[in-house]
Amino acid sequence: MELYKIDEKGLAEAMARVMEDYRVVAPVEKGPKHVFDDIEDWSDARPMAVGTVLPPKKYAFPQRETLLRFTLTGETPEAEAVMDDTPVVMAGVHPCDIAGLRCIDHTLAGRHFDEHYGARRMNAIVFGFDCMPDEHCFCTSVGTLKAESGYDLFFTPIQTGGFVIRIGTPRGRQLFEKYFQHAEGAGVYEESLEADFRQRKAEAVTAHIDAPVDDLPEVYQESMDSEVWDKWGAVCFSCGSCSLVCPTCYCFDVQDRVSLDGSEGRRDRIWDACTLPDFATVAGGHDFRPTAPKRLIHRHNRKFNYQQERYGEPHCTGCGRCGRSCLVHINMVTVANELIAEQKGEEA
C-alpha cells in the first residue's frame, strides 16, 4: 500500500479547502472535555482528542431525528419519509470509533437495512486520526489499536512532525488527490513511519482485560449468576449514561408528534438505553428486566457475548466512554476482570 505524508501546515491548508466544499465536523473543546461539532476553522479542531462526550456515531444515527412527516387532513393520512444524505466529513475519528461504526453497520446496515441510517452513513466521510490513550482507553484488549479499514483517509502523527496518510477507499483516494496531494509538505513515503507512534500508543494504554478477547463470550455465559452483577447493580443509578455514550449502542424509541390543530405531524426516533429503568417496560406495565443487576448483565453481555458471538467481533471497542461517564465507576475492564478472576478462582 502506498503511504503519503503531510505536514501540519499542509493539513490545515488542505482542510480549509475541504471545508469550502463540505460540512466538516471534528472534536472541539467544551469545558475540560471535547465534543464533536461543526467547525469552520481547522485551528478549532482537536482531531487527536480522546473521549469526546458522544462518539461521531451521532452523525449517522442522530440522538433525535424525524423519520417521516404526515398530514391528516385528506381522506386518508399521507406520509412522506424524511431522508438526510448531506455529505459530512467526520475528522478525528479514532480507531475505536471506526470499529463502533462497523458494529452498528452489522445491525442497521446489514441484513436489515435502515434507510435513514444508511443514507447518512454512506455520506459520512471518515477521516480517521490516531490518538494517545488516557487511563480509560483499552483498545489493545479488544483489537482496536489500529484501524485496518472503515476509513476514507487515516492520519497518524509521526515524530518528525506532520502525519502519515493512509488511503482506505476509492472515495478517499479522490479526496486525497483533490485536496491533499498538492498541499505544502505533501509527499510519498516508501515505508511506514507509523510503527513508532503505534508502539508508543500501545505502551500508553494502562487498562487491560486479563483474558484474550475471544475467550470473553464464554466468560460472560458462565457468569450470568455472578455476584459481581449484584455488587455493581447495588450502586448503579440506572441513569443510562453508559449506553448513551457508547459508539456501538443503537437502542431507540419512536414517538409521534401531532400539531395542536390535528392537521399534521411527524414521527421521531430518539435514542433509548437498556440501562434505564423504563426501557424494558412493555404495554400493560410489565418490566422484563426490572432490576439494575439484570440491566447490567444485559448491557455487558451485548458487548462481549451476544453480539460478539453473532458478528464475530466484540461490540465493545475499548473507547472507555462508559467508564468516564459512569459516576459510580462501573466500567467494562473492571467488570470483565472481576468475572475472569472469579472463574479462575472457581477452576483452581
Binding site: 462526550v53 440522538q63 443509578f237 441513569c239 449514561s241 448513551l244
Partner: peptide
C-alpha cells in the same frame, strides 16, 4: 421515568 442524565447525554452536555 428516567433520570436527567439521559438528556445531558442526548445534548452532548459535559457532565
Amino acid at each position: 421515568d428516567h433520570p436527567l442524565c439521559v438528556e445531558c447525554k442526548l445534548n452532548d452536555t459535559v457532565c
